[in-house]
Design a protein around this nucleic acid. Structure first.
Length: 151
DNA sequence: TTAGCATGCATCATA
DNA sequence: ATGATGCATGCTAAT
């Protein structure tokens, strides 16, 4: 079971990393093609502001580590989509990372920057939706506390 | 209406 | 046949 948001944040703080953004996984992100979850569609805004700029469609190779120090070699590229959108960003080679955290549709991929400037990515458990949310007593109290601090 | 993205799908490679 | 790759299509939320 993937770590909760709070658990991820705690780990990040321990490692001296700062959270950049996260991507909620869609069905196609998780079951891409034959290789499950090998390519993830990345949000355009966050990708362009936080990740290295892409000169060409060849993309860039990203050296990434997870919360356990495991290393992955991922490739960031883009597709040119018909007029509506200029670019659509794709992260390739993610299947191992997704499997490591047992990520399913609705869970999220967290992107962070480590203290020494490296990239860190981690899995994060799906946030319970408010409507008909069934959560444990402890979780509900926890969420209430979080909501209050956000006010 | 448009931008952004989930997903479908045509095409090419591999075996 | 099966899988990989890149583009097209259409839905939805923000403008």
């Amino acid at each position: 079971m993937p770590p909760t948001r709070d658990e991820v944040d705690a780990q990040l703080e321990e490692l001296g990393a700062r959270r950049l953004f996260e991507k909620v996984l869609s069905a196609t992100d998780v079951r891409g093609g034959a290789v499950p979850g090998d390519r993830v569609v990345m949000p355009k805004r966050n990708t362009e502001t936080h990740l290295p700029e892409l000169e060409s469609q060849a993309g860039v190779v990203l050296d990434v580590e997870d919360l356990e120090g495991q290393r992955y070699r991922l490739r960031l590229t883009y597709w040119t989509n018909s007029p509506s959108s200029g670019r659509m960003y794709i992260l390739e080679g993610t299947s191992q990372l997704l499997q490591h955290y047992r990520l399913r549709t609705g869970d999220a991929l967290v992107v962070a920057r480590t203290g020494d400037g490296g990239l860190l990515m981690a899995g994060q458990r799906k946030q319970a939706s408010r409507a008909g949310a069934t959560c444990s007593r402890a979780d509900c109290i926890n969420k209430l506390g979080l909501a209050l601090t956000l006010l």
